[in-house]
Simulated assay, not measured.
Amino acid sequence: MADPEGTERTTIQDVAAAAGVSVSAVSKVLRGAYGVSPQMRTRVTAAIDRLGYRPHTGARAMRGRTYTVGVVLVELTSPFQTEVAKGISDALEDTSYQDILVTAGATPERQKSRIEALLDRHVDGLVLIAPWIEVAWIEKIAQALPVVAVALHGTPRNFDTVVDDERLGAQLMVDHLVAAGHRQIAHTSAPRAAFEDTFVLSHTARRQGYEQAMRSHGLRPDVIETWLSEEGGHQAAQQAFDRARPPTAIFAGADIAAFGVLRAAEERGLRVPEDVSVAGYDNIYTSTINRVSLTTVDQSGHGTGAESIRLLLERIEGRAQPRQFVVSPHLVTRRTTTAPSGTGISNRGRTV
């Protein structure tokens, strides 16, 4: 495209090449994005001045909305997160909007990079599923763009949240196991994130609910830290089974981790639930399969996704005040929990 003087208009790609950086880096400097180093800003600004680059604001104004929504997951291997994403996609079906789904990994650096890439594509809003990022960074993004965070407990100033009442859900599970006669109940939970202070993620809220419920029954909490994955649950169960006094029940912090506990029990020749009761949290589809039949806490991943879109579209249409939608959990009892046998896990369940 030529400018009024007949010369070729300088593009953002030209600036990136002159500065020796990516187009995304130039975009960050132009919009004053968080995390740009002074050296990067100096290089890009010098290239802009040297080339006489002017952002094409007219084209952006003409375009207006892009009718796209960015959806950021930690990973596709998390069944609950994919169920939330499915709920988002289904909720957008009868609207003019389309979702752009990205996976960002569990590090703050990667998550910020993926979110910045969506901002560069001028999405109209963001849904962040279990974001592993300091909240101050999200607050800054939300000042300029509608944002909904899923599974982030706290009181934000600029964005909306959709959360499950995880403390209540964990209490329901502990009450169920105690009523069945269990006194040695282990819980698997992920490590706390560095930013978790006034805000906490789902696994921390579940851990808090578990600890409070155990103490209310006069029992000692027993938390095994691991990642909420199948492999993490497997490793936690191996650790628990090797103890001199193994737990009679393991309450995994997520269904996917409970599957790892079930695998470890099978490898040890332990019967579920006769030798050890196993429970999870999320009620993902696989938990409902008859062969698995996992006792768990339901929080409706699909419904969570639908509610996040409802709130996001309200924001896009102009609502300014933050809102929180709380999902009410309920206990789903299936075949993996029962009363303890009274004999505990025998030596066949231990590594010699």
Rank of each mutant, 00 (worst) to 15 (best):
Y53N: 03
S22W: 11
A136L: 07
H56Q: 14
L92V: 08
M1D: 08
D94P: 00
P329T: 09
V21A: 06
D90M: 10
T82Y: 04
A149I: 11
G232Y: 05
G169S: 05
T343N: 12
E83H: 02
Q111M: 14
R335S: 15
D120W: 02
L313G: 09
S22I: 11
G301V: 01
L152S: 06
D275K: 12
A236H: 08
D120G: 12
A249E: 14
A258G: 12
L177P: 02
P131D: 05
R323M: 13
V148A: 00
P131L: 03
A213P: 06
T68F: 10
E211N: 06
L311W: 08
T7P: 00
R243A: 13
G64L: 13
G169C: 04
A130C: 10
D282N: 12
L76G: 10
R41Q: 11
A19M: 01
D255K: 05
R334Y: 06
Y53M: 01
R157S: 14
L126G: 02
R31P: 04
F325S: 12
H330W: 13
V72W: 04
F251D: 04
T248M: 04
V327W: 00
L119W: 03
R192T: 14
A258C: 13
I115R: 08
R31V: 09
V71K: 03
E75I: 09
F159V: 02
G154S: 11
V15T: 05
A193L: 15
V332K: 10
V69E: 08
S78I: 10
A18F: 05
H234R: 15
D298M: 03
A61D: 07
S216P: 02
